[in-house]
């Protein structure tokens, strides 16, 4: 998802006999759905895992502005441009809510940004794919934001209060994103054959990477069980992925375009869609830094950060000067 394969630093789920009294008390509160707040005692591994998870999520929102920002100056109408700017501005806001939530755990925002630029922490694999046509903006809103919502709604109930509250704000805003994407797809699919072909092409390129957003299959996700116990992961990767497929296929049917998966079919007995195998080698290659746009994304973020340094310094110098003046007066 926006946070994929978050390490917990534990090899296996701790059982009750291995817990200290403090840890057992903490787990009992989590089990009883009492929210953990910033100043409460928490196990180090819980804190570190959350910092990693929230931070990956925040970076994904920020890096996620880049593929869409690519089309602001080339949106097909003033209306679409204004809408896209509002969406990209929301993504910046989401990143900021999440950085704040992570900061309550004792890590500074500058440190997180440095770690991103140094390649020490990841952002979602999905943002390493290029946006080649306007239809990609539609596909991103529809599929990528749709997949994000799927994952984020359960997180509104996660055990860490500041994270849960940030997710509630984010979820309220995400459905605008998904609808604007579907609206673009609908307009293209009702347009000329060339426009409809653009929509199909975008679906062809974004479908599989969207399914990869949910992370590796449950059998291979080593850290999920502990995260589930801590209630910072509420549904499994495969569960969320299946829900997403089930929800999205009828939407594509409505648009009159088809998923690039010859094995996709409704399974009456299971009550779900069956789908073909996902190319996990591609997913791992993208996570390792070898996706189509990894280097460009990081380069762009680092440059923006460095180019903005003088602004941050000047604003701080101005504030200091004003404070000194006020003191002297």
């Amino acid at each position: 998802m926006y946070a994929q394969m978050v390490e917990t630093g534990v090899r296996k789920v701790q059982d009750a006999t291995e817990m200290s009294p403090q840890e057992a008390h903490f787990q009992a509160r989590v089990d009883a759905d009492v929210k953990v707040e910033a100043k409460d005692w928490m196990p180090d591994a819980y804190r570190r895992t959350l910092i990693r998870q929230i931070q990956q999520h925040a970076h994904s929102e920020i890096v996620g502005m880049l593929p869409e920002g690519n089309w602001i100056s080339r949106a097909p109408s003033l209306k679409r441009k204004a809408i896209l700017m509002a969406k990209v501005q929301d993504e910046a806001g989401h990143g900021l809510y999440l950085y704040s939530a992570a900061e309550t755990l004792g890590v500074s925002r500058d440190q997180m940004i440095e770690d991103l630029h140094a390649g020490k922490v990841r952002y979602s694999s999905i943002f390493n794919y290029p946006t080649l046509t306007w239809a990609d903006i539609g596909a991103i809103g529809w599929l990528v934001d749709g997949a994000a919502i799927m994952n984020q709604i359960p997180l509104c109930r996660c055990s860490y209060g500041p994270y849960a509250r940030a997710m509630i704000r984010i979820c309220k805003e995400e459905s605008f994103h998904q609808r604007q994407g579907f609206d673009i797809m609908m307009t293209l699919c009702r347009g000329t054959p060339e426009q409809k072909a653009m929509a199909q092409d975008a679906l062809n390129r974004w479908w599989w990477p969207s399914l990869m957003m949910f992370g590796p299959p449950d059998a291979e996700s080593v850290h999920s069980a502990q995260s589930a116990k801590w209630k910072i992961k509420l549904l499994s990767n495969d569960e969320l992925r299946q829900r997403f497929v089930d929800q999205t296929v009828p939407q594509a049917d409505y648009l009159g375009i088809t998923m690039p998966d010859p094995e996709l079919r409704w399974n009456e007995a299971a009550g779900h869609y069956d789908f073909g195998p996902i190319d996990w080698a591609e997913f791992h290659a993208v996570l390792k830094g070898n996706g189509p746009c990894n280097r460009e994304r990081l380069r762009t973020r680092t440059k923006a950060w460095e180019d903005g340094a003088w602004v941050r310094e000047a604003a701080l110098a101005h504030a200091d000067k004003q404070a000194r003046k006020a003191k002297a007066a």
């Binding site: 509002a86 501005q89 929301d90 806001g93 900021l96 809510y97 704040s100 900061e103 925002r109 509250r165 940030a166 704000r169 805003e173 941050r312 604003a315 701080l316 101005h318 504030a319 004003q322 404070a323």
Partner: peptide
């Protein structure tokens, strides 16, 4: 209370708060 943000001074904190927390 709706959240937090970084700003060099109070004036910019209010402006940033408008953009981050009152877009709707």
């Amino acid at each position: 209370h709706v959240g937090s943000l970084h700003a060099p001074d109070a004036e910019l904190a209010v402006k940033n708060a408008r953009d981050v927390y009152t877009r709707r």
